[in-house]
Amino acid sequence: MSLMLPPESASAWSIVGVAHDLLAALRGEQGLLPRAESAVLVVVDGLGAIDLRAHAGHARALTAGMGKKDVATSVFPSTTAAALTSILTGVWPGAHGLVGYSVLDRAGDRLVNQLSGWNEAAIDPASWQVAPTVFETGRDEGRPVFAVGVAAYAGSGFSQATLRGADFVPAPSPAQRVALAYDLAHRHPGALVYCYLPEVDKAGHKHGVDSLAWVAALEDVDAALATRIPPGVGVLITSDHGMIDVPAHRQLVLDADDLQGIAHVGGEPRMLHLYLEPDADADAVLAGWRERLEGSADVGSRDEAITSGLFGPEVSSAAAGRIGDILVVARGNRALYDGTAADQRSRGMIGQHGALTAEERLVPLLRRGAFAL
């Protein structure tokens, strides 16, 4: 089956517009958010709207007053590298170029992990991701701009690609990060403050969305976000993607015969980028994958994905070069693995994302403080 986006509500917000909405609110421009003296953007990594509502009893602060319209749609693929970059730049993956978890650097003929592989691959974040960040735009307007996060992420290549322009301020726990973000917004009128909370995502990957560990992480985040918001500060709470549990018996492991004609397997288990050998018959390989995975995954070519708008309305030449020759998007709660790879650790992950289900693409969009007025 060819690739296409599922139908979406015309009134649904997109995470791509969050950066522009926040800046408009700070400028006092008419838009989706009311004016605020300062703004805090909280991203709870991996928190889908469906899973949040299913566990509302463990997230009373987050779900208080949450209505059907308090959601937004993530991007494709529904993974951190692509989605978080879209939130922080205001452009689609086809424009900023981070089109998956791992993608091919064609110049070096090697896969590059978009979260942690920048130094190893000697990739320059400024030239690989050229879209201006919301922090650079805010700084150019003379605003104080801050990113509050985990200390270990401060100097990473991904942070350099997505947090350019912001003063990075670390704090160890969700409660400390939220309190610090609110304090910075209060002490610096006109500020834009970003607060990143990765704990829910980590618990989901390791233990699954319905695990006690995931619930405990959600409760910690919920308690942190119950903190009183200073007057005049608008808070927008969202996520980059949701998550779905993949049990071991739903893993599809690809062997050497399956991968004939494939030079590199990139992406992630729920959304593969397949890069062909130079002499491969592209049409024959595509037809073979469609036949083998019928009912288990949607399979399409790069051209089909770009034409259908999966990566956004415009795709730069740089981004197009990083998209797989063939894309494989898992259906249901399946995941696909390269069984020939030396590193099989990812097969231990329970919670996963990257594909097109509502659980992965629908995220909360909650207005608090001055934005709730």
Rank of each mutant, 00 (worst) to 15 (best):
V71P: 05
P144F: 10
A25S: 15
G234Y: 05
W214Q: 07
I237S: 04
G369W: 06
G65C: 06
P231N: 14
A342M: 06
G232N: 09
N333T: 05
R302C: 07
H55R: 11
E304F: 02
G321N: 13
I262K: 01
D245K: 00
D283N: 11
G31S: 04
I326W: 01
P313S: 15
G67F: 03
P269C: 02
Q260H: 12
M271F: 04
A122W: 05
G312T: 07
S346Q: 15
P198W: 13
L5P: 01
G312K: 03
S38M: 10
F146T: 00
L84R: 12
T307C: 07
A95Q: 13
M4A: 14
L252S: 02
L84I: 06
A83S: 15
T73D: 08
L236G: 01
T307L: 08
T137M: 12
S308Y: 07
A297R: 03
W128F: 07
A256E: 15
D21W: 12
D210Y: 09
L293Q: 00
N113G: 08
V200P: 01
G17V: 07
V148H: 12
F158K: 00
E29R: 15
S102M: 13
A358F: 10
A280R: 04
D298M: 05
S211E: 10
W118E: 10
I244N: 00
V265C: 07
V99I: 14
D210N: 13
G309W: 10
D240K: 07
L212V: 14
V103M: 06
A54G: 13
R367C: 15
A216E: 15
G31T: 07
S173Q: 12
G261V: 07
D283A: 15
D220Q: 15
L252E: 02
H273Q: 11
R177P: 10
G266Q: 03
D222S: 04
R27E: 15
A82V: 06
D338H: 03
A151P: 00
L225R: 00
R164W: 00
P77L: 08
V253T: 05
A342W: 02
T238V: 13
S296G: 09
Y196K: 11
G232V: 11
S296F: 06
D109K: 14
T137C: 09
K206L: 15
L5I: 00
A341C: 03
T238E: 14
G321Y: 09
H96G: 05
D222G: 08
A107W: 01
D279P: 00
L163N: 02
W92P: 00
V91I: 06
G321S: 09
V200W: 06
Y275H: 03
A147D: 02
A83Q: 11
M4C: 01
L225V: 10
S159I: 05
L197D: 09
R361H: 03
V246A: 04
V235F: 05
G295M: 01
I262N: 03
A287H: 03
P34F: 09
A287E: 12
D240I: 07
L88P: 07
L47V: 08
A370F: 02
H55N: 13
A39W: 03
K68W: 06
S127W: 08
S78M: 09
D70I: 04
M349C: 04
R361M: 15
S14G: 13
L362H: 01
D51C: 01
A213N: 02
L212M: 03
A284N: 01
P189Q: 07
C195V: 13
P125W: 14
V246K: 01
G300Y: 05
R60H: 14
L5R: 12
P174C: 11
V75C: 02
